[in-house]
Design a protein around this nucleic acid. Structure first.
Length: 692
DNA sequence: ATCATACCTG
DNA sequence: CAGGTATGAT
């Protein structure tokens, strides 16, 4: 780029500069008519169908079925764990029952996408219905138990506590709903780790214990606890190789304490389960215990809660109730605030590339069973289904009230899905990941009715860097490395945590790097007005100026751009965009040249008068002026007219002599034109547009 | 592998 | 005009 002349190598066909004196009649006799008017055929390899994996025999259904399996198995998982919990099993291994009936359910359908969408919608509705039913059932059971307890001769003074508990539960559910909304956003972008985990479990435990002995009275409780387990699955900690590897970066991280806390909670729960089994407070305790996990974030001391239940003293209960109310309110506020803050910072801190250390790409292909091969990172034509996460495309800059995080990493407690009882994300948002590949991003954008085919998420694609770079050079973060290599050598988490306002429990923002830029640039967090807007810094005025500059330089170097746009904060994105501008300018320019050249050739062949000049009175000039100098305020430099004429004649010559049959026939012309750049007037060095 | 650009498309 | 992809240079 810095050396435009290097754009053209020596392999280009030798081009002789068109003799200015040449006119159409000079070449009329040698021009092969067959070439006249023929556009160079562009080679377009057959596009790799983005839904190729869906079209493969069994591939689509398996994928889609797997999605359902994952979703449903989540519920199964919860139910299965009920028994496990009751039986005191702590290994966290529960057979995931396959929902085989879903497999192949849509086989034979013509419109896979349409079916898939309907499939998702139906499953989504079913899933939420299940969640609603679950909540209702919990309420019912709770009331039944409370009623039984009252009928059982408990003192009237218990009535207050019962109401208190009712209230608390109501509040919990309210908080849950609020958190649910928040979490839903997270999940939208999160994908679900379970999808990968469940797959592994199924494979590993196929045929193992699957009996369900769910005792009805504990269903509510255990579902809640299972939610907890679901979110803090043992495998997340002990079995997740990827997570382990990922967080081994964090020598003394919040995750450590989180894991320790997790163990303590398990032991604590076991103790209380033993002494509290059959007790009236079991259900609520179980319900609250899940909350304790996220309340941990806020520091609600578990002992307070235990005291409230075990002591059965009115004072203790009220004390706890008050504490819980406070904690509920503040925790919700904190969580929301933190999330917002996180994404506020995100706009300030976006590394240029995902850190290698936390790349989800397995460093050792064998560690995941060797089934994950290197994922293509560039060419979409070879996009593995592994990287093709179906997404619903939306128009650019669609407001996307969701948080985008890596789904497969074990997040710190404060950023784990906030309430253990929050239902899994809507099915449509938890798209089935490719086998054995953790979901990169399960994201359903608020879609336009006309859903586009699934979008590929090329991993570590070059263009992804553009996303990061859009915020990388933020002036408020001068300490951040500007070089991507430097960044790769840094510890992204520490880097992130070192940010003054960052919360140590939040995941490293570089994780966001696994987004396709075309998606990520569409991300907005509406609540805080936070957005990744694309390439901020370039205005229509800059575009106008760039067009005028094109009159002088068709191939500006990046240094030239920086020199003549002193008011632009250049980062990778801005530079790329501006270079793209000039690329588009050239494209338009050469298209016009070729068009008029071909027209001249046709006219020459028909012995009509043709002109190979670009005077200010010509149609070609008018078109060019209209394009680059729409307001016609700027005086088009004579030099540009000359260059245009050279280009026109070169095109004419190439077409006339049949050189345009060579796929690279334009290359030589470019090589000529790029040498005709002229210096820019000093007026362009000033900020703003020279012509207002 | 990375990067810049041409080419094509919407 | 921008996004995506192919291609070639390094």
């Amino acid at each position: 780029m810095d050396s435009p002349t290097d754009l053209f190598d020596d392999s280009a066909p030798q081009i002789r500069t068109f003799a200015p004196t040449l006119n159409s009649t000079d070449l009329a006799g040698i021009h092969p008519q067959a070439n006249a008017g023929r556009l160079t055929p562009a080679f377009r390899p057959p596009g790799f169908p983005l839904i190729h994996h869906l079209l493969q025999p069994g591939g689509g259904p398996r994928r889609i079925g797997g999605l359902l399996n994952t979703s449903l198995s989540t519920h199964r998982h919860l139910e299965d764990r009920n028994v496990e919990e009751d039986e005191g099993e702590r290994d966290g291994h529960v057979e995931q029952r396959m929902e085989g009936g879903d497999e192949g359910a849509i086989e034979g359908k013509d419109d896979l996408l349409g079916v898939k969408k309907r499939h998702n919608d139906a499953a989504l509705a079913a899933e939420w219905n299940q969640d609603i039913l679950k909540v209702k059932r919990m309420k019912l059971e709770s009331r039944q138990r409370d009623g039984e307890a009252d009928e059982g001769g408990k003192q009237g003074g218990r009535e207050g506590r019962r109401r208190e508990r009712e209230e608390l539960k109501e509040q919990l559910e309210e908080a849950r709903e609020r958190l649910q909304a928040l979490q839903e956003k997270v999940w939208r972008a999160f994908g679900e780790k379970h999808m990968a985990e469940d797959e592994k479990k199924r494979k590993r435990r196929n045929g193992s214990s699957g009996g369900v002995d769910g005792r009805e009275e504990d269903v509510g409780l255990i579902e809640e606890e299972d939610m907890t387990e679901g979110m803090y699955d043992e495998e997340d900690i002990d079995g997740g190789e990827m997570e382990k590897e990922s967080f081994s970066l964090l020598s003394e991280s919040p995750f450590d304490s989180f894991h320790k806390r997790k163990e303590e909670l398990q032991k604590d729960r076991e103790r209380r389960m033993e002494r509290g089994r059959g007790g009236g407070g079991l259900h609520l305790e179980g319900v609250m215990e899940g909350s304790g996990l996220w309340l941990d974030c806020g520091g609600l001391v578990r002992g307070d809660w235990d005291g409230g239940i075990d002591d059965e003293s009115e004072e203790g209960g009220q004390k706890f109730a008050a504490a819980l109310k406070l904690e509920l309110g503040s925790a919700v506020a904190r969580v929301i605030d933190r999330v917002l803050r996180l994404y506020t910072e995100m706009t300030d801190y976006a590394p240029s590339s995902p850190p290698a250390a936390i790349s989800f790409l397995p460093s050792d292909p064998g560690s995941d069973g060797g089934k994950e091969k290197a994922v293509p990172t560039h060419s979409s034509a070879h996009l593995s289904p592994l990287t093709s996460i179906p997404l619903t495309q939306t128009s650019p800059c669609t407001t996307l009230p969701c948080l985008v995080l890596l789904p497969f990493l074990t997040l710190p407690s404060c950023l784990q899905p906030l309430s253990p009882r929050i239902p899994p994300p809507p099915l449509s948002t938890r798209l089935q990941p490719p086998p054995l590949l953790p979901p990169l991003l399960s994201l359903r954008l608020p879609s336009s009715p006309a859903s586009a085919p699934p979008l590929p998420l090329p991993l570590l694609h070059y263009s992804m860097q553009q996303l990061f770079s859009r915020s990388l050079h933020h002036p408020q973060l001068p300490h951040l490395p500007s070089s991507r290599k430097d960044y790769l050598n840094s510890d992204p988490f520490l880097e992130f945590s070192s940010h003054p306002s960052s919360h140590p429990s939040f995941p490293p923002l570089p994780l966001l790097g696994h987004l396709d830029p075309s998606l990520a640039r569409e991300l907005y967090l509406t609540a805080g007005g936070i957005s990744f807007c694309q390439c901020e810094g370039l205005s229509p005025c800059h575009l106008k100026k760039a067009k005028l500059m094109f009159f002088y330089t068709r191939y500006p170097s990046s240094n030239t751009l920086k020199t003549y746009f002193p008011d632009v904060k250049f980062n990778r994105c801005v530079t790329s965009q501006m270079i793209k501008w000039f690329s588009n300018f050239r494209e338009f320019f050469y298209i016009q040249m070729e068009r008029f050249a071909r027209q001249a050739v046709r006219e020459a062949l028909t012995r009509r008068e043709s002109q190979l000049r670009v005077g200010r009175d010509t149609e070609l000039y008018r078109i060019l002026n209209m394009h680059y100098n729409k307001s016609n305020i700027y005086q088009v430099p004579e030099r540009f007219i000359e260059v245009s004429e050279v280009a026109l004649r070169e095109f004419y010559s190439a077409i006339w002599t049949g050189r345009d049959s060579d796929p690279c026939w334009k290359k030589g012309i470019y090589k000529i034109i790029c040498k005709l750049d002229s210096p820019l007037p000093d007026a362009f060095r000033l900020p703003g547009c020279p012509v207002g």
